[in-house]
Structures are given as C-alpha cells and as structure tokens.
C-alpha cells in the first residue's frame, strides 16, 4: 500500500503551493474577520486622534491627510502582521507546514500576498475614511489612488511578513515587530505619502511619478529579498 500511495501523490509546484497557502490565509482571515474589523476600528481611531492633535483646522488637516492616512494604516498593520504568524505558531501549524515538502518560498509569498490583500482593504477603508473626515477634494483619477494604495500596502507587507516570522519566537514580539519594521519602511511610507499627497493636491511638476517609481523599487527589493531569506529564518 505505501508504494501505491507515493505513486498517487504529485507534490505541487511551489507556485501552486503559494496559491494554496494564500487561499488558506485568506480563509483564516475571513473566519477571524472580527480581528480585521478591530484593526479597521483602530485605524479609524488613529485618524480621529490625528485631528485632535492638530486641532479643528480643516485646511491643515486636508493638507496633511495623506500622511495621517498612511500612518494609521502602518500602525494598524502591525496588528495584522503579528497575527499572521501567531496563528501559525499557536498550535504548531507552521511546524506542520515545514514538515511537508513545502518550499519555504511558498510559505513566505503565500502569507505575504494574503497580508497584502487584507492590508490593501484596510488601507483602502482608511483612505476613504480619511478623505471623508478631513474633507479632501479628490482631483486625480481614482485608479491612480488604487495603484498607490496597492503599492504602499505591498511595501509594508513584504518586509512585515518577513519580520513577523523573524520575531515570532522572540520573547517580545509585539514590541520588536514595530521596532524593526518602522525604520525599515520609512522610504515606503514617505513615497506613499508623497505620491498620495500629489494625487490629492495636484501635481503640476509631475513629481508623483518618481515617488511611484521609488515604491516600485522598494517592493521589488523586499519581495525578492523576503523569498531568499525566509527559508533561513524558519529553518531549525
């Protein structure tokens, strides 16, 4: 019988495994959507807090709306990212995954993509909420917002997933994840804020393009690096 079993299994290509892990994480996210809602609420609260810190000055708030929106998204993203490996560690599921003939890259890309999807939704809601709260007049095409939103979220989720795995077994994960991640994503945040800002306020000198370029480069570097280094990080 063992002979027959090994014949009927055909270990999927790692890209297919990536897809399987992505789907698994999204299903998990959907099952625990209460947590995602909590993150959205948290991000919304951040937006309100910013307006309290600045004072009821509509022009000022509208001017800096891009910054507040992305900061709220970044702060709530740490909640999402630390969750990402908590569900793996809780009952030894990650160990189970690693004991299967699964390419570590599949685990990284699957989880990072899932985080990207959720983070994009989160950021999208925050963006809409922020524009509404700070009475921002949108001039650019909505699709351009979407592309910046996707790039910015991707820039957080790739290094975020890697660092989430890295800190998963540290004693102080909740503390270490932002300590390591925030300085790292400064370029990404800066670019996302600037690009969004130019979309809001108009971009007469066409500077938004170079920030988008920076976002793309940031993403290319960290999505590639994550795949290379993740195997090392989870290896025993």
């Amino acid at each position: 019988m063992p002979e027959s079993t090994s014949a009927e299994r055909n270990i999927p290509h790692w890209l297919i495994q990536t897809w399987q892990i992505l789907v698994k994480d999204l299903v998990l996210g959907w099952r625990t959507r209460a947590k995602v809602v909590a993150m959205v609420v948290f991000a919304g609260t951040m937006l309100l807090l910013f307006s309290f810190a600045i004072g009821p000055n509509n022009t000022l708030l509208a001017k800096h709306a891009a910054g507040y929106v992305w900061l709220s998204a970044l702060l709530s993203s740490t909640l999402l990212l630390s969750q990402s490996f908590q569900v793996e560690g809780e009952s030894g599921a990650l160990e189970g995954l690693l004991l299967l003939p699964v390419d570590p890259r599949a685990i990284f890309y699957g989880k990072a993509l899932a985080n990207w999807v959720v983070l994009s939704l989160l950021t999208g809601l925050v963006l809409v909420g922020g524009f509404f709260l700070f009475s921002v007049e949108i001039q650019a095409h909505p699709l351009r917002f979407v592309s910046i939103l996707l790039l910015g979220s991707a820039g957080i989720s790739a290094p975020g997933t890697l660092y989430s795995a890295l800190t998963a077994r540290a004693q102080a994960q909740q503390l270490m994840l932002p300590v390591l991640l925030f300085p790292l994503v400064i370029p990404c945040m800066l670019a996302a804020v600037k690009a969004t800002g130019f979309l809001i306020q108009g971009d007469p000198m066409d500077q938004g393009g170079s920030w988008t370029m920076l976002l793309i480069c940031f993403n290319l570097i960290y999505w590639a690096l994550g795949g290379v280094l993740f195997g090392k990080v989870v290896d025993e």
Binding site: M205, Q207, G209, S210, M213
Partner: peptide, 9 residues
C-alpha cells in the same frame, strides 16, 4: 535647491 525635485534615476 532644497525644494527642487530630482528625476528618480
């Protein structure tokens, strides 16, 4: 100058 933007690459 400080405010001037440079081309990306």
């Amino acid at each position: 100058t400080p405010s001037a933007q440079t081309e990306p690459f």
